[in-house]
Amino acid sequence: MPRRRDRKEQMLAAAQYPLDWLEERSGLIGGLRYFLFRKVPGDSGWWHTLGSATLTAFLVQLGTGVILAMYYKPDPKSAYESVQHINNDVTLGWLVRGMHRWGASVFIILIFFHMARVFLFGAYKYPRELNWVVGVLLLPLALLEGFSGYLLPYDQTAYWATVVGININGTGPFIGPFLASFLRSGPEITGDTLSRFYSIHMLLLPGAILGLIGLHLYLVVRLGVSSPPWSPEAAGRERAEPPPVPGSGLVNPAPRGVTKRPD
């Protein structure tokens, strides 16, 4: 049945064609293949999922945030009512708002967990110092997201927590008072404050976080995920001190097979 075979091959080729087309013009398919099929240490496991879990929480914030922005009105006269509207009238609005509200907490908790895992695994050591720095920069940005979003529902808690929060900024040396009056956009909290917080919350900070996450992931892929510190694979440390072999100094790695991963 040579004919049927031909047809199958033709179909495969037809399915392959757009991918080849894209690959030839962009290299994106190759990039994706590299990303998916790159090797990670054999004993990397659940501890290594905290970073991508953090990313997931952030993506939930982006998605729910976009939906909330379709109904929210950053104006002191209507902000509170628009949030009530989301809560009470919009289909599943309560769910989207609830996910955004509590997703923020989950995001922050996960950042701390991820940071703790990286610290305890010593994964910030050479050559991943830069990625640690990028991570540390992400932390205050995430906290500021929480701070700037807190005002938006414009209820009593939101309003007064922000008043005090901004005033605390004002106690900072040198730039403190300027920062406070910048955030407030004047000496008092007004409508401009609210739209300023809104812009910071949904454009400035998410943009910065997204950019830094991109850099963070680029470095993760480029350097490879570190193996756990107990790993028999070279976890960036000496193996169980291999017997010195002539000709194997520090520059020439010790010969293979001195230690083996248990199967």
Binding site: K39, P41, G224, S227, G236, V251
Partner: peptide, 17 residues
Amino acid sequence: VAFQRYKEDVKRDGKPF
């Protein structure tokens, strides 16, 4: 050296993402 060794180890014994 250690990082080089890590890369070789992972390439040989690692699992695909």
